[in-house]
Structures are given as C-alpha cells and as structure tokens.
Design a protein around this nucleic acid. Structure first.
Lengths: 191, 191
DNA sequence: CGATTCTTTGAAAACAGTCAATCTGTGTGG
DNA sequence: CCACACAGATTGACTGTTTTCAAAGAATCG
C-alpha cells in the first residue's frame, strides 16, 4: 500500500523525499479512528505521538486555575496536532486534545519520527518548514490579539474562516479568541 | 578562521553537522555591528536576513492602528532574530527590528541559508529544532496571556527573567505583556 | 419528547485604558 | 558646574470594555 495520499501531498508541498523514505514513513504511521468527544491526549500524560488529521476536527486546550477551558488551537484536515512541548521535552502535558467530530488521523510516534529524521534530509526539511508555518501562524495570531478588540477579532475570524465557524460551537470560538461566551454572544448580536 | 564559537556551540546543542558544512556556514555569515536604536528591519522592507545575536539586545514590534508600538519579541544573546513571515513568504514586513543596546550579530541571508539547507541534513535538523523551540515558547506565552491577569504576568516575568528586566525600560515590558505603561506602573506599585 | 448542550439577556462589578499633569533621573552643552 | 532638555516613570480622576453571575431561551440529539 502506498502512503496515504493526503499526507503524501502535504509533504510534497514543502519537500521532496525519495520513495524509500516515504515508504519508511508509511510503515511507521498507523491509521486511527477517533470518535467525537474522545481524547488523543489528556493532562498528566506524556505526549508520545503526532497526529495528522485526515478527517474531522480537534481542539487542544487547557483548564486554568479557575476551572475554565482555554483553547490554544484547533486542528483540521491536513494539520498535525500534538503537544510539541510535552513531545520534545518529555514532560507531562497540561493539554487536552479532543476530537470535536468523528475523526480519522495518522498516528506517528515520537520514537519512529526521531528514527526517520536521523536519516532523511527531506523529512527534516518538511518538519522544519512545517514548524516555521505553524510559528508564523502563531505570531500572526498574537499580532491580532494585541491589536484588536473582541468585536474586531470576531469579525476577522468570521471573514477568514466562514466555513470553519459552522463546525464549532460559539463558546469554543470565544475560548479560542480569549473572551467569554457571553461577551461573544453580545458582540455578535450588535450589527 | 573557525566559525564563531557562540553560534557553533548553539548549533551543537541540537545537531551535529560535519566540519565542512560548518565551514560553508562560516563563509556565508557576516559579522555586523549595530548601534543602539538602529534597525535591522523596518516596516515595508522585504526581510532578507536572519541575525544571530552575539551581543546586545533587540526588540521586534509593530505599530498598530492607533499609533501604539506593540512588542512581539525580544532577542538577546544566542537567539536568532528575523521576521520569518516576511522571510519565508517573501512579503513586505509589518515589523521593526531594533537594537536596544549596541549589539553584534551574525547576518545570514535567506538565499545563503536556502543553499545550505539544500545539502545539509544536520542544518535542517538544527533549524527544525530551533523552530520547534521558538514555537513552544510562543505557545507557553499564549498560555500565560490567556490565564493570567496583568499583575500576575508582571510577577511571572519578574521571577523568570530578573536580569533581563534591568536591560529594558518598563514601558517596553508593558508593551510586550500587552498592557499600558501606566497600568504596569500601578501594578508594580502595589506590593 | 425529554435531557443535554448551547446561546442569549441583563444588571452589577472588576479590570484595564485614557488623558493630563507631575516627578525623576540622566546626559548635554554652555 | 549649572541649566536645560529629554526620556522614562508615576499618579489620579475618569471612561470604557469585558467579566461575572444568574436566569431564561433555543437548539440538538438519542
């Protein structure tokens, strides 16, 4: 069996690994079905895998001192989800990663990845560029959150990701944008 | 001449490139002296370089719609500073990168870097892990900013980076933490 | 339909920003 | 050595935005 087409194509956007490296990757990954509301990762666990989302949607969040959920990221088709801090620094995770829909992922263990990366320039390139993209996205997000009011944040998100908004409840968007659901509801009511 | 010791050691923390790759890197970098208050990068320019800080201190910031400076990052010894968004997506930058002290950097052009990365697994590894670390730091910062009040943020920064606080004026810390200098001054006054 | 889960609403309170004035320290030039 | 300018820090009164809490209202799913 050939490596999954979606992952294959995603890799080819950034790097050009030879067939045999893709084949090794193929052997290292594992297809998993994850039901809505179940977790890939929970607080206190050591994160041992990266997950490439084939289908569905995830959120990663933590619970703060007041008991409120704070969403750090969403992950949809063609994104990797994981707790990189826990993964690469082998510390227990603060995060929950939860499926918001019935989902399919390719699971890749940290150990397998490390082995692959020891011998593949192109996979190093792929994950380097991936990290760069992720980091740029974070930086832009920080840029927005610094700059914009709650109302502006909501409208920006609305215009950037109109489709995605259909897939998540409002209170999760509120959490992601750093405000309360009540406030976001009011903001949305105006205009 | 051997590649700069500081950069050399930094690379060796994460990767083990052979001598000849380090030598090529050595040929690609250029030592620059940057006077206090001058800029590596200004809004509207295409960012073409990464800078490895040997000595001194930088801030990268943008100016928002109200004309207020917002600091996204500081860069000190052993950090790379750049606008990765502008660098890797070849777009004009929104950012200013400014020296806060008389500084020394190693400048590496995007083109040279790309060439080096085409043939070096270990440099790909180095920059991959670097990006990962940077990303993790951003994620932690977001975690804090979500979770903590202005007062808590200030005290956390104070305990994490007591020395660095001596090097920057308070109003820059305020900007970095996402609050006004007046508010930070009041917060600091209490207790 | 019944039970959750999600969203809206309103009033009070907390938190942080704004603006303007003042204070402090530092370095510069006369 | 003094006077001055300037950058940075502080203070207070006022304003505004967002949160909190409690309750009620939709919507969705089994």
């Amino acid at each position: 069996m050939m490596i999954n087409k979606k992952l294959h194509n995603h890799i080819l956007q950034f790097a050009k690994p030879p067939k045999e490296e893709l084949e090794k990757l193929n052997q290292a990954i594992q297809l998993k079905t994850i039901k809505k509301k179940t977790f890939c990762l929970q607080k206190g666990q050591h994160c041992q895998h990266l997950y490439f989302v084939l289908k569905g949607c995830f959120r990663s969040y933590f619970i703060n001192s007041k008991g409120t959920e704070k969403i750090l990221n969403f992950g949809i088709e063609n994104w990797w989800v994981s707790d990189f801090d826990s993964l690469s620094n082998t510390r227990t995770s603060d995060l929950y990663i939860q499926a918001l829909e019935d989902s399919e992922v390719l699971a890749l263990s940290k150990d397998s990845l490390d082995q692959l990366l020891n011998h593949s320039l192109e996979l190093n390139r792929y994950f380097r560029i991936l990290m760069e993209k992720v980091r740029i996205a974070d930086q832009r997000r920080m840029h927005y959150m610094f700059n914009l009011s709650g109302k502006e944040l909501y409208h920006l998100f609305l215009t950037h990701y109109p489709d995605f908004m259909q897939r998540i409840p409002l209170y999760m968007l509120a959490s992601y944008l750093g405000m309360t659901p009540e406030f976001l509801s009011k903001v949305r009511g105006q205009k």
